[in-house]
């Protein structure tokens, strides 16, 4: 059997790739994709831990995460589409009328 630490490491690597992609990409759609990657790292964590501890609540949380990620993608893409209609671009560094 594969030890649980391997899964946790894989999830951590996946999460870091997500964070890296989020920080370096300019396209807002790709940034959203990177967030999905981070959420899937969470899912992997939860399922691995849940299996390791023989406890089901982690897997239930995974279902909720999947559902919430779908809702998030729907809202996110809707907002991005409205931005594109207004601005004709989805590149993060061109949507800069407001400066922190």
């Amino acid at each position: 059997m594969i030890p649980v630490n391997w899964y946790l490491t894989l999830a951590a690597v996946l999460f870091c790739i997500g964070v890296y992609g989020f920080l370096t990409r300019r396209n807002v759609v790709i940034m959203l994709l990177s967030v999905e990657l981070m959420l899937n790292a969470v899912n992997l964590n939860l399922v691995a831990i849940s299996h390791y501890m023989q406890d089901l609540s982690g897997q239930i949380l995974t279902f909720f995460v999947i559902a919430v990620a779908a809702a998030e993608a729907a809202i996110g893409l809707a907002i991005i589409v409205t931005v594109f209609r207004n601005r004709r671009t989805v590149l993060g560094d061109q949507i800069t009328e407001l400066r922190g």
């Binding site: 946790l8 999830a11 999460f15 997500g18 989020f22 807002v28 940034m31 959203l32 967030v35 981070m38 959420l39 790292a41 969470v42 964590n45 939860l46 831990i49 849940s50 609540s57 982690g58 949380l61 995460v65 919430v68 998030e72 809202i75 996110g76 907002i79 991005i80 409205t82 931005v83 207004n86 601005r87 949507i95 800069t96 009328e97 407001l98």
Partner: peptide, 29 residues
């Protein structure tokens, strides 16, 4: 530029959610 505000709020909001969930998965572990 309200859409720009919405994009910023949403995109950073979902990242904070992802961090929080990652934290929850560790707490559960």
């Amino acid at each position: 530029y309200q859409f720009e505000a919405a994009v910023k709020y949403m995109i950073f909001g979902v990242v904070s959610t992802a961090f929080m969930l990652y934290g929850i998965s560790y707490l559960y572990g």
